[in-house]
């Protein structure tokens, strides 16, 4: 039998048999080379209580080349793109070793959620947020977990019960700031956009003058 197929089949079986790790891997279609993995958000983190889905593609030269993984669930994390779910993790690139398995890679993703690496970001805006105010970042990450990953705050599961998703909270901004600039006559979406881009949070707030923000708002 093809070594790659044998290996992938064994990995899938191993994962099924191992109940302790909480990692699930299932087939997306008929091919064993396109999979969907999922794991619970690690405890004592803003991601706790959420369930995170990962898209897994096994390349032809697996296991000698790394698997391709990206988050299906939206995650607010410095090393994960908030738009595409792309992951910045060394073992998925040049630090890959053929000894690593799907399970161990998923565990690595789980532990990436525990300890972000904001100095080496995939999503620069999120990383900036993390650096300026960790508390505010965690609040936003928790909110994302809640609405996208079915975290504890959501009442009846997948965030359905929350009527309107709070755009301000998604962007990790202070509602007061948004309202202040909105009252100047700028559209809400634009205000959120500019404030997020300028990282108008925590210790940064006194550093950015209102003029600067208005200037940016006028440019947009």
């Amino acid at each position: 039998m093809d070594a790659r197929l044998r290996r992938v089949n064994k990995e899938i079986t191993d994962c099924k048999n191992d109940k302790s790790s909480n990692i699930r891997i299932e087939l997306v279609g008929d091919s064993p080379f396109h999979l969907k993995g999922s794991f619970p958000g690690p405890q004592e983190t803003p991601y706790e209580g959420g369930n995170f889905d990962v898209d897994i593609v096994i390349p032809d030269s697996y296991p000698f080349q790394p698997v391709k993984m990206k988050f299906i669930t939206k995650v607010y994390h410095p090393n994960i793109s908030s738009a595409s779910g792309a992951i910045c993790l060394d073992i998925l690139k040049d630090a890959w070793s053929p000894v690593l398995t799907l399970k161990s890679t998923m565990i690595s993703l789980q532990s990436l959620l525990c300890s972000p690496e904001p100095n080496d970001p995939q999503d620069a805006e999120v990383a900036k947020h993390y650096m300026t105010s960790k508390a505010s970042f965690e609040e936003t990450a928790r909110y994302w977990t809640e609405i996208y990953a079915g975290g504890p705050g959501s009442k009846a599961g997948k965030g359905v019960s929350i009527g309107v998703r709070d755009e301000v909270a998604i962007a990790g901004l202070d509602p007061q700031h948004v309202t202040r600039f909105e009252s100047l006559g700028f559209p809400r979406g634009q205000v959120i956009d500019v404030l997020r881009r300028l990282n108008y949070r925590g210790a940064n707030v006194p550093k950015i003058t209102d003029d600067r923000i208005v200037e940016e708002l006028l440019k947009a």
Binding site: D90, I91, D94, A95, L112, C114, P121, Q122
Partner: peptide, 18 residues
């Protein structure tokens, strides 16, 4: 403490700097 089977080392990539 965190890792389950010891293989869960992780650090984010540092692209060219590596």
């Amino acid at each position: 403490t965190r890792s389950i089977d010891g293989s869960a080392s992780r650090r984010s990539t540092r692209g060219a700097t590596r």
